[in-house]
Write a protein that binds this DNA or RNA. Sequence first.
RNA 1: GGCGACGUGGCCAAGCGGUAAGGCAGAGGCCUGCAAAGCCUUUAUCCCCGGUUCGAUUCCGGGCGUCGCCUCCA
Length: 502
Amino acid sequence: MRVYNTLTRSKEEFVPRRADAVAMYVCGPTVYNHIHIGNARTFLSFDVIRRYLEWRGFDVSFVRNITDVDDKIINRAREEQVTAPEIAAKYTAAFHEAMERLGVKAPTYEPYATQTIDEMIEMIERLIEKGNAYESGGDVYFAVRSFDGYGKLSGRDVDDMRSGARIEVGDLKRDPLDFALWKSAKPGEPFWTSPWGDGRPGWHLECSVMSTGHLGETFDIHGGGVDLVFPHHENEIAQAEADTGAPFARYWLHGGMLQINSEKMSKSLGNFMLLKDVLGTFPAPIVRLFMLQTHYRSPLDYSEERLAAAVKSYERIETAVRNARAVAEGAAADGAGASASSADESSLAEALVAAPEDARARFIEAMDDDFNTAGALAVVFDQVRLVNSFLDQIGSGRGAGYSDLLKAIIDTMLDLLRVLGITFAEGEDGYPVEVVDLAAQLAGYGGGDTREAVDALLASRAAARTDKNWGLADAVRDGLAGLGFVVEDTAQGARVIYRGQS
RNA sequence: GGCGACGUGGCCAAGCGGUAAGGCAGAGGCCUGCAAAGCCUUUAUCCCCGGUUCGAUUCCGGGCGUCGCCUCCA
């Protein structure tokens, strides 16, 4: 398995510190607002990485924090005239709900900054003791120049940065590059008691403390969006490595930005779409498919057109699964044996036999190469075409004998898609009540059950078609279409797919 | 200005030394009462210019263009 490591700017063989386990940390949200779809992309990327590592047999410890103390939270609380903890609680809950809706697995540990204050204070004390930090007017700063490796992650030279850094009048820093570990509290701000007076931790510190706290020194993977490389991750490294003297994280993985009109989506630019709103229009599997068709490190442009295209490709998979299942189940019911009736059919059958193992191998090959989800999806679509071609070849009613083969390939496809967190709803109903009226009108249905109504409509359409009463047959189909149903005539008879009203 | 990434068919996107996966869209054909779904066929001087190589989309240099970080940001 090879992964791109920002630290070395190259793809490296991935060797976790323990052969059978992976310790990974991903920077979680600062809970001052709903997360937008760009934030979601990063969480999704690392969710897939985590799922893949688990699928490959690693015991994954996945830590993702909640930063619930920060200037932005305080500002937001002021705006909304509530307390900072109320803001944090509100958006933490919203974050959890959104992650669940997106199908992002819950982390193994989810530490909160406000519950780690003691540990942070302890780290600051150690850093002061070692000469890497100093107190100044109630604040504590990290002395960037006291740490040799500063800039190694982002490829910066401390002296180059100096010219660009601004020095504010009355700054308490000794060096403009120094960053705050502890900020003294201003009136009305939340605070904790510390050896340097009442205050709160600076950004960056919580991640160093919480990651090493749960995963130990020199854990395997540290992830986040590329925009966190500097200064956030650079500072995390400085704090943690100055403290422990050991390497902080071994592989630094960074996700590319989600863009809109080729421009980074961000809250400060105001060009963002909230995840919860996007999920209101496009279900989680669609959003995942849309995002995973691009490599996680590449920029990805958001557009509704592309989401709509993802709907079509999702339906392509869904249809293949449904068709294969229908044939496999019908065949199993027949119980009769069958032999290939043509050369094409038998060569396709051979390909089908090899398909599950072949797909798995190619999927692994793609994912082992820095989590190439786009390549992995191509493998799935290849299986889709294989299955469809086969179904096309064997034609109607002759699936017998191929039932197990079809089931095996479908199971494999679904298994691979599950690694990407892309799932399919099973046997949902939720038909609109209007079908009952439609059935009363067109099929003489007298009951009140939506499923029965649909069955009655299909039965009346089948009868109409036998009588070549195309007018009635089409009226039924059009009526159902108006309610969000697609009618498909298959070898096993007519079938209805509910796509919802739109 | 400093650091970094990227530029592949109509749109999106893998591949990264032996002339190009996949998705969406388009065209033609098959199937269908008509559809839907599906199958088959079909669409690429891989941004430009040099260089290395038997051979480059793939490596190196230069150019042009787009984007990110350098301030809060996933």
